[in-house]
Simulated assay, not measured.
Amino acid sequence: MKSNLPTRKIFEGVATRPQMFRLFGRHNQRPERWQTDAGPLYNGEWFEIDATLYGDMLEILPPLWMRGPVFALREFLAGSITSIFFALRIDGKLRYFHGYCDVADPNSVETMRTAIFERESHLIRGMSREERLEHIWSSTADAYRGYAGERFPPAMQGQRTVMLWSGVNGTILKLLNDLTDDEIAAKLPVHMRHLPTIAA
């Protein structure tokens, strides 16, 4: 379940308030939720928000710290993982982002800031395969996503799954990472289906 990427974009577009809070709980269905640490799953995830949400989150509690337009929430998700909010000027436009960083690592916030800036500075809008899969996971309703259980071989158990309409075979359960390009396109919103693929 843990990503090998140090930072990863998990939602395409600017998240609304309901979407933001849903993204905060995107791993709530994980197996053994109460026995396992969620920190490694969330650490490094980021997505875009708007100026209003950025301001609202700044006003909820006094931040743990604030360095210019970057601040950390005082409440921790798990261990030393907490929410970091960024206001970044990218291509002349001020944009806002949320990410989870391990503040015990002195380089984690700067690593995420750099990753966001580099990813969002691309002149051609596109998505990597990994970003497409993360967007599908983030935007799929809880009833249609989950984790592989005993029906799957032991090596696959615990991996993320999504429900698909296969036509001939009706609704099927499939590992998220095993989706074909056509299945990915079918699960994405229409305006994202034909975005060019970029290197992760």
Results as ranks from 00 to 15, higher is better:
N4H: 12
E12Q: 11
V14N: 01
T16W: 00
L23C: 04
G25T: 05
P31I: 02
E32G: 08
E32W: 12
Q35L: 15
T36Y: 13
T36K: 10
Y42N: 13
G44N: 08
F47W: 14
L61N: 14
P62I: 07
P69G: 02
P69N: 14
A72T: 07
E75H: 14
F76T: 15
L77C: 00
L77N: 06
A78D: 15
S80D: 12
I84A: 05
A87D: 11
R89I: 06
G92A: 07
K93W: 03
G99L: 06
G99I: 04
Y100L: 05
A104E: 11
D105V: 06
S108Y: 10
M112V: 13
I116H: 07
I116R: 06
S121F: 07
L123M: 04
R125G: 06
M127C: 10
M127P: 04
L133S: 07
H135C: 03
H135N: 00
R145K: 15
G149E: 10
F152E: 04
A155K: 12
A155I: 09
G158A: 09
T161A: 01
M163A: 14
W165F: 02
V168I: 12
N169E: 15
I172K: 08
L173K: 05
D182N: 11
R193N: 01
A200I: 00
